[in-house]
Amino acid sequence: MGTLRIHFDAEDLTRVTLADEPDPLWEMIFTRFRFRDRVRSLTFRPWFEEVREPARTAGMRRGAHVLDVLVPAGPYFPDFLTPYEGLRGLDSGLAALLRTPKRRLAAELRLLARHRTLPRWVRPIAEGNALALEHLGAALRDYHETAIAPFRELVGAAVDADRACRTRALLRGGVEGLFAGFAPLMRWSPPVLETEYVVDQDLVLGGRGLRLVPSYFCQRAPLTLADPELPPVLIYPIEQRHRWRPAVNRRAGLDALMGANRSAVLHALGRSATTTQLARMLGISATAASRHATALREAGLVDTRRDGNAVLHTLTRLGTALLQGSLPQGSTGGPAGADRHGGTENGGTENGGL
Rank of each mutant, 00 (worst) to 15 (best):
G347H: 11
P72H: 03
L70P: 01
L296F: 13
L131C: 04
A106I: 01
E127N: 12
A107M: 05
I284F: 01
F77A: 04
R306T: 14
P150V: 12
Y84G: 04
R110V: 03
H7R: 13
A73F: 05
R15F: 07
F151M: 10
V51C: 03
A247W: 13
R103E: 15
T117P: 02
L185A: 08
L193H: 03
T294A: 13
D142T: 09
L70I: 04
L318C: 00
A58R: 15
G2P: 08
A73H: 05
A138T: 09
G283T: 06
Y84R: 13
P190L: 10
A264D: 07
H313W: 09
A19G: 10
R5S: 15
T316H: 02
E27D: 15
T43G: 08
A107W: 04
A288N: 04
R245G: 13
A310Q: 11
L98N: 00
R262W: 03
V159Q: 05
V302F: 07
V199Y: 08
A55H: 06
F151D: 09
T3N: 08
M28T: 09
R297C: 12
L111I: 05
T294P: 01
R120W: 06
G181V: 11
L98A: 11
R172P: 01
L230H: 01
T195I: 06
F217L: 15
R36V: 10
G259Y: 00
F33N: 07
A226M: 02
L136F: 08
V198E: 06
G74V: 06
F44D: 15
T320K: 12
D68M: 09
D255M: 08
T146M: 14
L118C: 04
V39R: 11
G181E: 10
T167C: 12
L109C: 05
D227A: 02
